[in-house]
């Protein structure tokens, strides 16, 4: 299976280990990720905040680069929203489509599929690749953290949603999902840079909430959440924050831990060793 791949800025720099583990996992399940040539930043929160034109046009350029007939896999949940919203706005407006074609000198593809890593699991049969997959993760206790990634704006509210996906997939691989109260609490996004104290109080609440239910780690599928949770947590006792893709790759045995785990600000290696996973 071939996908165009949009990593986004967060995976390109702070989330190297997320990018590497995602690519390793995809390869192992015979999914080819072909990086979208010369992709640009989707604008993130800042374009939306202060410049509606730029916010509308940045994702458009990325859409214009996507080859026809190949679904576009987007690694960052917030880029995913921006790209989908931009696509939907074009699908709904013929005049805008014409302007788009003139602007980017390429036909608009109304059928372009824009999907997240989560949607891959409804397209591949994981059991084919994870023979004896049960229990590979040796009962590691995790708090599934989605942040705001599953919260859709009203115009996307009828699209498929993926609540509980990390729990389902990782439980099948032998990890133990915990139920807790902070799985959908936003990490603070840009406030982590612009108002660190505010982000810290929210992040501490999230990490403490995970420790209250005796989680050994938090698992997230968003590189920005990952960075904020690691960077802004000031609790004395902390637990590691793992990328969903890291645990997938770990379960599958395609990991390259020397390259990923040292990049964490909260070192997950002691925990993984203790659980017999390294």
């Amino acid at each position: 299976m071939e996908f165009s791949y949009f990593p986004g800025c967060s995976l390109k720099a702070p989330g190297h280990e997320n990018n590497l583990s995602l690519i390793a996992f995809s390869k192992a399940v015979h999914v080819d990720l072909i990086e979208l040539p010369d992709w640009n930043c989707c604008g993130s929160s800042s374009a939306h905040a202060i410049d509606p034109t730029v916010a509308a046009l940045l994702p458009q350029r990325n859409l214009s680069l996507a080859p026809k007939g190949r679904p576009l896999l987007v690694a960052c949940p917030s880029c995913l929203l921006r790209l989908r919203q931009a696509h939907l706005a074009l699908v709904r407006d013929k005049e805008e489509q014409a302007a788009y074609e003139k602007r980017w000198q390429t036909p608009f593809d109304p059928n372009l599929e824009i999907i997240h890593l989560f949607e891959l699991f409804s397209r591949i049969d994981l059991s084919r690749y994870l023979k004896n997959g049960e229990n590979r993760l040796n009962g590691i206790r995790f708090a599934p953290y989605y942040g705001c990634m599953l919260a859709r704006p009203p115009d996307l509210r009828f699209e498929a949603n993926y609540h509980g996906l990390m729990e389902k997939v990782l439980a099948r691989l032998g990890a133990v999902p915990l139920s807790w109260g902070y799985g959908a609490r936003c990490c603070g996004t840009f406030l982590s840079a612009a108002k660190p104290d505010l982000a810290t109080s929210v992040v501490n609440g999230i990490v403490a909430g995970a420790m209250d239910v005796e989680a050994e780690c938090l698992v997230t599928a968003c590189a920005m959440c990952h960075l904020n949770l690691e960077l802004r947590c000031t609790l004395q006792k902390k637990i590691p924050i793992l990328h969903f893709s890291e645990l997938l790759s770990l379960a599958q045995g395609t990991m390259d831990p020397k390259r990923w785990f040292p990049k964490h600000l909260v070192d997950p290696r002691p925990l993984l060793k203790q659980r017999g996973l390294l």
Binding site: A151, P153, R185, F190
Partner: peptide, 27 residues
């Protein structure tokens, strides 16, 4: 301060796009 996390938008019984309102007010 609003980060556009959509937490409010999913909870709103009237499907009001609150983050879009915040965007509009900022502009």
């Amino acid at each position: 301060i609003c980060v556009g996390c959509n937490t409010c938008a999913v909870n709103c019984p009237m499907a009001i796009d609150i983050p879009a309102v915040m965007d509009a007010l900022r502009h």
